[in-house]
Structure formats: C-alpha cells, structure tokens
C-alpha cells in the first residue's frame, strides 16, 4: 500500500474535480519550516540499541512500565503505546550479524513523535487539543480540550498518538519533545542520555546542516560526532557508516522536525514512504474550497430555501 507522490497528485487532481474554482488544484501553499524549530536527529548508524533513551524518557515523563510476555520483569514495549512515548526497535535479517546491512544484518530505529512541519493531527483535531508551538514547532497535547475522538490516530501517517484504552478517563499520549524540560533550559531526555550521539537534539536548521555533513563523510573514516545536543560542544569519535543518500523527514509528509539518517532504506526500518505533503493538506484543501467563510453553504442554503418555498407554494 505505497502511495507515491504521483498518486498523491492524482488524488489531489481528482479531489479538485469537485471544485468549481480552478485554484483548488494549486491548493494552499506548502507550509515551510519555522526558523526556530527544535528537533532531533536520529542517526541509526550510531545507535547501539542500549535503550537508555527509553529509560530516560520514562523517567522524564513519569510513564509507567509496560510488559509483554508472561513475566512482568522488564519494561519491554513492542511499540509506542499509551505507556511508551519513545522506543528503540530492531530490524533483523538472516543471521543478523552485520550492522546497517539489509541482508544478514541488523539496525536500530527510534520511534517517537516526528513533530511534523504540517502535522496531520493538528489539522484533524476537532477541538484544537493538539497544537503546534509557533516558535519551536513542538506538537503538544491539551487534555482539557480533547474529546477523545482518536481522529489524530487515524490521520497520523507515522501512527504516533496513542490512546489510554484501559482508562475510564483516558487521554491521548504522545511525545511532546520534553517541553517541560525545555522551559527549564534542559533538552529532551532521550538526547541528553544518549551515549553515542545517535539521538541529537538541536535547532532543526542546524540538524539539517549536520545531516549534510554526515552524508558527505567517507565511510570507514573517523569523524567527530556531537553528542546530546548539537551545541553541547561534546563529541565522540566514530567511524562513519555508509549512509543512504536520503534524510528521512526532510520532505516526508511535508517535512518533520525529527530527522533520520540510516545505512539502509527507511521502509525496512518501518518508516512509511510518504508524499511531500501530508494527506490532511488535501482534505483541508477540499474542506476550505467548499466551506471557506461558509460562503458556498450560505449561497446553497439561499437557493434551497427558494426551491423549498416554491414547492410549498405549489402544493398549497
């Protein structure tokens, strides 16, 4: 079920058939990145799978343990959930011996909220419970606004928002990039604890520059990699891996503030192939085309009233 950009445009075009107005084809302009946006660069090739980011995340956000299997002795979620905001997953193939290799290899991937440039959840939420910070671009949740409809879960292309199914008074749960730590001048817990710099916190524009630097590295040569935060000044020396020439999140779903580098195709790591606009943008376009300022509905209502009155008079 891979929908490519071509399909997306076709969808857009077919959606436009509905419209009387030609500008609908162009739709609203693509949203651009906020200049002070904050994000994370996750470099799968640097990740050693220690899961300290998961521990740090649970501690920083006061999240409960989650158990799979008969023994409740590990916090071992198998996916993001209402109890887990951040998870390290492992790709394994064949004998699983070689890092970042598709065949007989393994690789790690960190999953968490992508903090999209044009977040689907924010677009879809009927009660504005999910909002994108105007400065940092962090997508946060307001439980007092939320009605629990779970439309955010339907529309999120990355399957990030989760719902507390077992609670009588449930909430939507998702990573909020440790917003409560940022106001204290700290950084996201997963990044501050990451020993190798695989999870790197920083302004998205700097992180994008860093991805450019890493893409140009010669595989096998030693380089310095910043750890924790891009401006921390602390570095670790690692051998550069063979990166695939693609930064996931640069354009996916309109771009995300969490960026990925990896040594193997991202779809193997469970990251979906997405067009460069979020699907909600298309839904929004159709919506705005029809309902902008409620002009079309009001005109339609006027016409309907006329028709109804005419019929009524004839019957009388």
């Amino acid at each position: 079920m891979e929908i490519k950009r071509r399909d997306f445009l076709k969808g857009l075009a077919s959606g436009a058939l509905l419209a009387v107005a030609p500008p609908a084809l162009a739709g609203s302009p693509k949203k651009s990145r906020l200049p002070d946006a904050l994000g994370i660069l996750y470099d799968s090739t640097l990740c050693v799978g220690c899961q300290v980011c998961m521990v740090a995340c649970k501690k920083a956000n006061n999240m409960p343990d989650e158990h799979y299997g008969p023994q409740k002795i590990w916090d071992n979620p198998i996916d993001l959930s209402a109890k887990t905001l951040n998870i390290i997953k492992e790709y394994e193939n064949g004998n699983g011996k070689y890092k970042d290799r598709k065949i007989d290899g393994y690789a790690f991937v960190k999953r968490q909220c992508m903090h999209c440039v044009d977040p689907s959840c924010v677009s879809a939420c009927p009660a504005s419970a999910l909002t994108k910070d105007r400065k940092t671009g962090i997508v946060t949740y307001n439980k007092d606004a939320c009605i629990g409809c779970r439309y955010c879960e339907i529309v999120c292309p990355f399957n990030i928002p989760k719902f507390q199914w077992e609670e009588p008074f449930p909430q939507i749960v998702k990573c909020q990039l440790c917003s409560h730590l940022l106001v204290k001048g700290e950084i996201a817990a997963c990044c501050s604890e990451c020993p190798t710099g695989a999870s790197l916190f920083g302004p998205v524009k700097d992180l994008l520059k860093e991805t450019g630097r890493r893409q140009k590295m010669t595989p096998g040569k030693q380089y310095d990699f910043p750890i924790s935060s891009i401006s921390s000044g602390k570095t670790q020396t690692h051998k550069a891996a063979r990166y695939i020439p693609h930064v996931y999140g640069e354009n996916e779903a309109g771009g995300t503030q969490v960026l990925y580098l990896a040594g193997m195709p991202f779809n193997r790591l469970g990251l979906p192939e997405l067009p460069d606009r979020p699907y909600t943008a298309l839904a929004e376009n159709i919506q705005h085309m029809l309902y902008k300022g409620m002009i079309l509905p009001i005109v339609a209502l006027g016409g309907l009233i006329f028709l109804v009155k005419r019929t009524g008079e004839k019957e009388e």
Partner: peptide
C-alpha cells in the same frame, strides 16, 4: 517484584502483530 523496571536487552521488532 521488580522495582525500577528497565528494558530487556532484546529489542522490539519493526513489525509486531497486535
């Protein structure tokens, strides 16, 4: 009872049937 529960050394798979 395990206090201070931390993740196992094993990792979650990319795709998990649920």
């Amino acid at each position: 009872d395990v206090e201070n529960v931390t993740p196992a050394a094993a990792h979650a798979p990319i795709r998990a049937e649920r």
